[in-house]
Simulated assay, not measured.
Amino acid sequence: MNPFNLPKIIINRFTRKTECVICFKSQPKSLFHKITTNCNHELNICKLCVNKHISIQLDNNVDVNCPFVECQQKIQYDDMKEIANEKLFERYDKMMLYQALNEIPEFRWCNNSRCKFGQIYIQEECEPCDPKITCKDCGKESCYVHDISWHQGLTCSEYEEIDEIKATQDYIDKKTKSCPSCGVRIIKSGGCDEVQCGIKSCRRTFSWKHV
């Protein structure tokens, strides 16, 4: 209420409020903080909007910049601890931890989707012919080299051969079709829908779309 019809700026001075440049709401001055230690702009973005900005940015990247358009200073770890609410900081802290772990070449997450455990393995300790690693939390066995569930009964070389064959078969299944007459696989590189089998004894013409 404004019973004396005083200008808004005077009312805000009396009630110690500031208008946020993002939400345009008059908020208590206690909600306006320096966002990063390197920011030198006016404190005119409320903490609620800063937290909303951080939450949106964390959906894409752990690196978050100041929301002030002309600033764009990176919000550092200590800055985040001061400006973010408890739940948001816990989310950021966990993302920072995961990022740090993923940058360690010897680190592997457990391949059990229900297990959140991870371990660091020194490559020299893994036998070249059998690089099987076991999660110390749930016991799940994984392959250190391929970072997948352990390929039981196969060496890494054998697994790679089978994987290569499977990739080739997948390509054949997706890119080629069988001739309706002789069954030979045909690949179509362009042109109209009508194709002709390349086998001399066949030469069947058919619609690529309807095979």
Score class of each variant (00 low, 15 high):
residue 191 G to R: 08
residue 145 V to M: 11
residue 106 E to L: 04
residue 142 S to G: 01
residue 161 E to P: 00
residue 177 K to S: 06
residue 184 V to K: 15
residue 112 N to T: 07
residue 188 K to R: 15
residue 106 E to F: 01
residue 133 I to C: 01
residue 176 T to D: 06
residue 133 I to F: 01
residue 181 S to F: 08
residue 188 K to S: 09
residue 107 F to M: 13
residue 139 G to H: 02
residue 168 T to M: 14
residue 162 I to C: 04
residue 163 D to H: 14
residue 141 E to Q: 14
residue 108 R to N: 07
residue 149 S to A: 07
residue 144 Y to N: 06
residue 129 C to E: 13
residue 188 K to C: 05
residue 182 C to K: 03
residue 108 R to E: 01
residue 194 E to Q: 12
residue 140 K to F: 09
residue 164 E to L: 12
residue 179 C to N: 02
residue 143 C to R: 03
residue 185 R to L: 08
residue 189 S to I: 12
residue 170 D to M: 07
residue 150 W to H: 09
residue 189 S to R: 13
residue 125 E to G: 01
residue 103 E to I: 02
residue 191 G to I: 04
residue 124 E to N: 08
residue 194 E to C: 07
residue 190 G to L: 00
residue 112 N to H: 03
residue 165 I to N: 06
residue 125 E to R: 09
residue 170 D to W: 01
residue 122 I to D: 13
residue 200 K to I: 10
residue 113 S to R: 12
residue 183 G to K: 03
residue 192 C to Q: 04
residue 109 W to I: 01
residue 171 Y to M: 08
residue 131 P to M: 07
residue 189 S to V: 08
residue 147 D to L: 00
residue 115 C to M: 03
residue 187 I to W: 09
residue 150 W to S: 11
residue 124 E to R: 10
residue 118 G to V: 06
residue 134 T to D: 01
residue 170 D to H: 10
residue 167 A to T: 13
residue 150 W to R: 01
residue 126 C to A: 12
residue 124 E to A: 14
residue 119 Q to W: 04
residue 103 E to K: 15
residue 150 W to V: 12
residue 198 G to E: 02
residue 195 V to T: 08
residue 117 F to R: 00
residue 166 K to C: 12
residue 141 E to N: 10
residue 132 K to D: 04
residue 161 E to I: 14
residue 111 N to P: 00
residue 189 S to A: 11
residue 136 K to Y: 08
residue 171 Y to F: 11
residue 150 W to F: 12
residue 156 C to E: 08
residue 173 D to M: 10
residue 126 C to N: 15
residue 152 Q to E: 15
residue 108 R to F: 03
residue 177 K to D: 12
residue 129 C to V: 03
residue 157 S to H: 06
residue 165 I to C: 09
residue 162 I to Q: 15
residue 114 R to D: 14
residue 137 D to H: 13
residue 143 C to T: 03
residue 122 I to G: 08
residue 107 F to L: 12
residue 136 K to D: 15
residue 127 E to L: 11
residue 106 E to A: 10
